[in-house]
Design a protein around this nucleic acid. Structure first.
Lengths: 331, 331
DNA sequence: TTGGGTTTCTAGATCGTTCTAGTGGCACCA
DNA sequence: TGGTGCCACTAGAACGATCTAGAAACCCAA
């Protein structure tokens, strides 16, 4: 089969229905100005021919594109959850989503350029690693919304979660349970690792406790490696940079014959899908990624549709206590 | 800031460089037919104005789009690895990639339509769940390549892995170690669950062993639930539908105080990123997803550039033995 | 019947490119 | 001198839609 037939155009539909191109255009985009009877006739003809409007031509003419560009990291499973939520939010506001992944041989600039090439009316970047300068340059062309990173300079919007509040909740939760020797396995150079590190220091200080921080990273291996360096001086609780890192920590402890949470409590960050897995039941700070995604989409659409000044939305995270945190072993 | 300045066009560059639009076009796409001196002059002017070709207009005019549409499941972490590889393959053949995810409220048809709207010259669908009829309909419009599913009807290409061979390797590996009581936790209604189930039955038969199959699924929870039903009659080895399912099985066994691989060997499928995690070290059947992705891209490009008849590429998987399979406990 | 208002429909310009069919200039050679 | 071929360049028509301005059809009151 596979007849490489030329795909039908407005012209063809118009001809088949015996009306002008303009009228078909009116009908196809549901604009007012067509009699109900002809509207039906046109739709019928379109369906018959298998007509599908050419979005390139459509976009070219009417520069309002109703298209949001979203960049994400293919290696970051957590980002997939956000993509999911963003789709829902975008369609509910009548926009389509163009996706572009930051992958191994594909730097973020390339991903963003590609989104621009598709004619995105605005960009939503998840945890962007770009410089303020780069971000500003893009913001000069279209509205840019940074998701999960707030340190992005003036001209770009941001929708993020209050890292300090999140870490405070984590520390309060653990100290509330009676922990005093708490370690933070940090995120290394990952986005938002620095604010969480600082918040941990401040919060431990506030409680009059020593803030011990171990270099980590965003992956299981990072958590694993970090936990191995704990050595003799075992804490009673660990706050990991994120859930994957927490999992690495847990596995390392397990390998040493330690029980979580009996011997050591472990707290994650992100409340990602797998934190909820029944065998893990990881306590975690939830940033409510789906809500953040929706907020980012809203912000982007608002900017497209007129809002002038960039805004910086910060949401307060909340704690989800599951089975990996408990009071420290008595004694 | 955010000056919503009109973005410069060919016209502007032409005017600035004192040449015609057509010549600028020639220079911008690196076509022959421009003197080196003017070429430099034009490039200079373009750079100065911050000119960026409008891909919509460009695509509209030259219907060769150099764009591949790729659909994937946002919930399937494994698909992200394929996306990654597909990017590399696509760029190496000079094509760009349009991504579209199948997400919670977003059925596969919607994802595919959206790719078509972007003007994809061909579609690559990862583990498509569409009917033969739907697939054929799309294949009538553009070349369609199914990745990781081969039962897709005549008019669409497929690039997949030989499931029977994979399962044979798995069974041979385990029987070779001395296992005789082997269970398959299947994939339920997931794509390619059926062929693997059938292959397991056939291969166990060939070895003169009883093929015990337990209903499972593609997620950790499925594996967990399935493993719980093993009850008293414990096998010495389990072949899981995929790696995530295998992880669920392992965790369930662990929870019962059993050791992997000492008490029970567990084999995964996919050799996904996390199978390689140092604390897991999951033995797994590798489909070489990156290679498959590259093959799919190649196939799609070949079809776009002239190949007429659809092909069905089948690659042979290979076994990656790590630490979750071992000889059965003596006795 | 006329006239004004509304609704329905159409012709033609337009978006920013690429492509086709030239034009003009220069060098070479008979 | 003039023909031929080549190179650099250009004018203008596409591509397939939307948009603007205005024509045609219709309705109803005067």
């Amino acid at each position: 089969m596979t007849e490489q037939q030329r795909r039908p155009t407005l012209m063809d539909v118009a001809h088949a229905a015996g009306v002008s191109r303009a009228l078909v255009s009116i009908v196809m985009r549901g604009a007012p100005g067509a009699a109900e009877s002809t509207r039906q006739k046109v739709l019928e003809a379109a369906r018959e021919l298998g007509y599908r409007p050419d979005s390139r031509a459509r976009l070219l003419r009417s520069s309002r594109t109703r298209l949001l560009g979203l960049s994400f990291f293919s290696a970051h499973a957590f980002h997939a959850e956000i993509v999911d939520a963003a789709y829902a939010a975008a369609t509910s506001r009548g926009y389509d989503l163009a996706l572009s992944a930051v992958a191994s041989g594909r730097p973020e600039t390339l991903a963003v350029e590609s989104l621009l090439d598709f004619g995105s009316a605005a960009l939503i970047l998840i945890s962007p690693t770009l410089s303020h300068q780069d971000l500003a340059a893009y913001a000069g062309q279209v509205p840019v919304v940074s998701l999960l990173r707030d340190d992005v300079g003036d001209p770009v919007d941001s929708v993020s979660s209050d890292d300090h509040a999140g870490v405070r909740m984590a520390v309060d939760h653990l100290t509330g349970l009676g922990h005093r020797r708490i370690v933070h396995v940090d995120g290394g150079i990952a986005v938002s690792a620095e604010p969480r590190r600082a918040a941990f220091r401040a919060e431990m200080d506030r409680h009059g406790l020593a803030a011990r921080i171990i270099p980590g990273g965003p992956t299981e291996e990072d958590g694993l490696r970090a936990a191995r360096t704990l050595g003799e001086d075992l804490p009673t609780a660990v706050i990991a940079f994120n859930d994957r890192c927490a999992l690495g920590v847990i596995e390392s402890l397990r390998a040493d014959g330690l029980k979580v949470p009996d011997d050591v409590s472990v707290l994650g960050y992100d409340d990602s899908q797998f934190a909820r897995l029944s065998y893990l039941q990881l306590s975690s700070v939830s940033q409510d990624a789906p809500l953040l995604a929706a907020a980012a989409v809203d912000r982007a659409v608002d900017r497209i549709e007129g809002a002038q000044t960039p805004a910086h939305v910060v949401r307060t995270p909340h704690l989800v206590v599951r089975k990996t945190t408990a009071p420290p072993r008595a004694g």
